[in-house]
């Protein structure tokens, strides 16, 4: 048997209990940032330690874990996190989104809709959506308590005045359960709508900033926008994945080594591989028939 040197799931039970308590509170108050002590983890602080602590506090022996970094299962940091969780728990790992019970992700929500049997853990670098215009935590806490969000509306308004449109990129702020303005973590705007009435529980963990927050299943999540300047996702109209042909997915923009032309490819690598496998099967079965 493989020798486990550290405690199951790395953290001592006292720490896990504390994280779970913060998580329960986060679920009870959708979009509210719950402070927690946040342990130092054996991976860089700023490299997904908030997500990792959530994952380690939740993972049980029966869980099947998937870790993605910016859409890719095999990205270096996803591999590193998977390796750490696996070496301290021996849980089963997967790349297939539908097989996972626990999915830790950095900055993407998978293309396949998640189910109520799954938990999505998102890594968060900057949990405070109001930080862009208010530097002090002491003040932003009060602004949230008083639901005083005119600053963030003004920020969007100013963008329209300056650029003729809102110019947010990833991490476009959302209003959760008609109460808290929340940073959805730097997922592309493309993924924001996936949070709305998600069947899966979405937990967000910021390790360095020591905050946990949540979007419970079937919760209203609205991307901040004006009636006359509506929320817009990244635009990939007319483009398709050069491998699997998928449209209406978030695409990576690449340069073809041979032709020097811009090509597009699914950002969600396991989604792409899955489609390719299915296409191949179909081709095989057509030949058989």
């Amino acid at each position: 048997m493989k020798k486990l040197k550290t405690h199951f799931a790395f953290l001592d039970e006292g720490s896990k209990k504390e994280i779970r308590r913060a998580t329960l509170k986060a679920v009870a108050i959708p979009g509210y940032q719950v402070p927690f002590a946040s342990r130092e983890m054996p991976i860089g602080r700023g490299w997904g330690t908030g997500g990792l602590q959530l994952t380690l506090s939740l993972v049980g022996k029966e869980d099947v874990l998937k870790v993605i970094d910016q859409g890719a299962d095999e990205s270096v940091n996803a591999v590193s996190i998977k390796k750490l969780v696996h070496s301290t728990t021996n849980v089963e790992l997967t790349e297939a989104t539908e097989d996972a019970t626990l999915i830790q992700s950095r900055h993407r929500i998978p293309e396949i809709p998640l189910t109520k049997d799954q938990i999505l853990v998102l890594q968060v670098p900057m949990p405070e959506p109001l930080r862009t215009y208010e530097k002090k935590e002491y003040i932003t806490k009060m602004l949230h308590a008083e639901k005083e969000y005119s600053g963030i509306w003004l920020m969007l308004f100013e963008q329209i005045m300056k650029y003729g449109r809102t110019s947010t990129d990833a991490d476009h702020p959302v209003l959760v359960n008609e109460r808290y303005v929340m940073a959805p973590s730097p997922i592309p705007r493309f993924d924001n709508p996936k949070m709305h009435h998600s069947e899966a529980l979405i937990l967000l963990g910021a390790g360095r900033e020591k905050k946990i927050y949540a979007v419970p299943p079937y919760t209203d999540v609205a991307s901040l926008a004006f009636d006359d300047y509506v929320f817009q996702k990244e635009d990939f109209s007319g483009e398709a994945c050069h491998l699997c042909g998928a449209t209406d997915v978030f695409l990576d923009e690449l340069v073809d080594d041979h032709t020097g032309k811009t090509i597009y490819q699914c950002n969600d690598t396991s989604y792409c591989v899955d489609r390719l496998n299915k296409l191949e099967q179909e081709e095989v079965s057509t030949v058989d028939a």
Binding site: Q70, G71, S75, N77, H107, P188, E234, D252
Partner: peptide, 18 residues
């Protein structure tokens, strides 16, 4: 050091969005 060094992680999605 953690947050400064995280800038070395891939930011493809966020950059694509930008």
């Amino acid at each position: 050091t953690g947050f400064i060094s995280h800038l070395k992680l891939p930011h493809y999605v966020t950059f694509q969005s930008k």
